[in-house]
Design a protein around this nucleic acid. Structure first.
Ligand SMILES: NC(=O)c1ccc[n+]([C@@H]2O[C@H](COP(=O)([O-])OP(=O)(O)OC[C@H]3O[C@@H](n4cnc5c(N)ncnc54)[C@H](O)[C@@H]3O)[C@@H](O)[C@H]2O)c1
Ligand SMILES: NC(=O)c1ccc[n+]([C@@H]2O[C@H](COP(=O)([O-])OP(=O)(O)OC[C@H]3O[C@@H](n4cnc5c(N)ncnc54)[C@H](O)[C@@H]3O)[C@@H](O)[C@H]2O)c1
Lengths: 211, 211
DNA sequence: ATGATAATGTTAAAATTTTCACATTAAATG
DNA sequence: CATTTAATGTGAAAATTTTAACATTATCAT
């Protein structure tokens, strides 16, 4: 049975393994990976067990094989194209970001904005008028989007995205988007994260139950 | 007993309540707030009960009183000053962000960078050379920092921050920072969040245990 | 007033997630 | 080649978190 947080941890392991491979590791023990990823060795083994990632008794896990397995799980072999809505402060930052610690990879293939002054049809990541958004998504068969528009417009944009086939959304607007149950949403609220850190650092880690 | 996720949810409730107040609500039922915050009514009541936020039987919760209580919990009355290290893409975006849905508020009082071309001593949020960081933090008694430097420098910056009294860190570098146990760290990994959304939207919400 | 109603608050139960314990087994050692 | 060792893999136990049930009580209608 897949545990809710295990996906998140697998991604963390993936990142750590890439770095460990860079450092010359060919195999890794659960306790080393656990230390890197900030979890216990048992958690690593349990997670790997759940996804049938096998190690060698006494020999640990092969870095390459484990990464292969993780890449398979996360479908790194197929194109993962994502569009971005809202080319403002955060949208621009994201568009310049190459994800991954060393496995540099671009996900964003196009951005859309309502403001004509933001448009840039011929850029590496083209910034197109938001009117073209639906057609573009349908044509290219995009299924995941990033919302980086003001909160007031976010639900609207969200509805339009779902209307043209988007199934997963990473949302930076500080609002909980309402969606049909089959749509995957990750509402990221950086203010709340910061306030959480402030709170925990004030009251002490123990009394606030933070990770 | 304080549940790990309850802090996160309280912050969400706070955000929702601010918006509901804007919309003219004076009282709110647990099921309404739950709907807004994306949790069950029972969860709302349970969380509020834990933090001794009281409603009226049949009457729901007073928006104002609840917000007062939340502001007290999160110490909105005292200054919450934060510094930022790394004035690159993401750092710049964050420095221009006024947190909160409507209760606009700035947290970042200064930024530090190693690159001389980034410095701007007289800006609204001054960008200072990173050599001045420790003195600034000690002088102003800052306890929370945001790390937005490349992964390769992040642990280094982190160590320096802790060395001069920082107790809480929001980290954007894709690496798990190693810190003494009393330090509060929130490692945000936007790539992993995106990959998680891609994964879940591919395999379906049910089979991946996402929220 | 008084009873019906519709919400909260809280205790108990269920579900989930993590940790533990240890059997298993591949490698290293002598 | 037998023995020791040091890791994994997993089922069971513990801990945590969420959900459910319902007793309580303020409000509203009569
Ligand atoms: N700046 C940050 O660091 C930061 C951090 C966390 C969250 N956020 C949130 O991210 C969102 C964007 O923040 P920002 O600072 O980048 O704001 P911004 O104003 O700089 O950018 C918003 C962009 O969205 C565009 N836009 C507005 N309505 C649109 C629509 N209907 N369709 C397409 N494009 C539209 C605007 O033209 C603008 O370019 C906000 O909801 C904000 O709360 C920002
Ligand atoms: N750009 C994004 O959207 C994004 C998203 C998520 C995470 N991140 C992560 O955030 C970090 C910054 O990303 P970015 O795109 O803003 O990179 P960037 O290169 O634009 O900015 C990094 C800044 O840090 C400064 N810096 C480097 N070493 C420093 C040091 N020791 N002390 C002080 N300042 C130093 C650089 O001069 C630069 O201004 C990276 O770790 C990146 O992986 C970025």
């Amino acid at each position: 049975m897949i545990v809710k947080n295990s996906i998140k941890r697998l991604l963390q392991y993936q990142m750590c393994l890439v770095r460990l491979r860079e450092l010359g590791f060919e195999k890794v023990y659960s306790y080393v990976l656990g230390r890197e990823a900030g979890v216990t060795a048992e958690q690593v083994r349990k997670d790997f067990s759940e996804f049938e990632i096998r190690g060698k008794r006494k020999g640990g896990y092969s870095v390459d094989e484990t990464l292969d397995k993780l890449h398979e799980i996360f479908r790194k072999n197929v194109m993962q194209e994502v569009i971005l809505v809202g080319m403002g402060n955060i949208g621009t930052a994201l568009s310049r970001y190459e994800c991954g610690f060393t496995e540099k990879r671009k996900y964003i293939v196009a951005a859309f904005d309502i403001d004509p002054s933001k448009l840039k049809r011929n850029a590496d990541i083209p910034v197109l008028p938001v009117e073209e958004m639906e057609d573009y998504i349908r044509e290219k068969g995009i299924t995941v989007a990033i919302i980086a528009v003001p909160a007031i417009s976010a639900q609207d944009v969200c509805n339009r995205l779902i209307g043209c086939g988007i199934r997963g959304i990473m949302n930076f607007a500080p609002i909980i988007l309402k969606t049909p149950p089959h749509i995957v949403i990750d509402n990221i609220n950086l203010c709340n994260v910061l306030e959480g850190v402030i709170y925990c650092s004030w009251y002490g880690k123990d009394s606030c139950g933070c990770e």
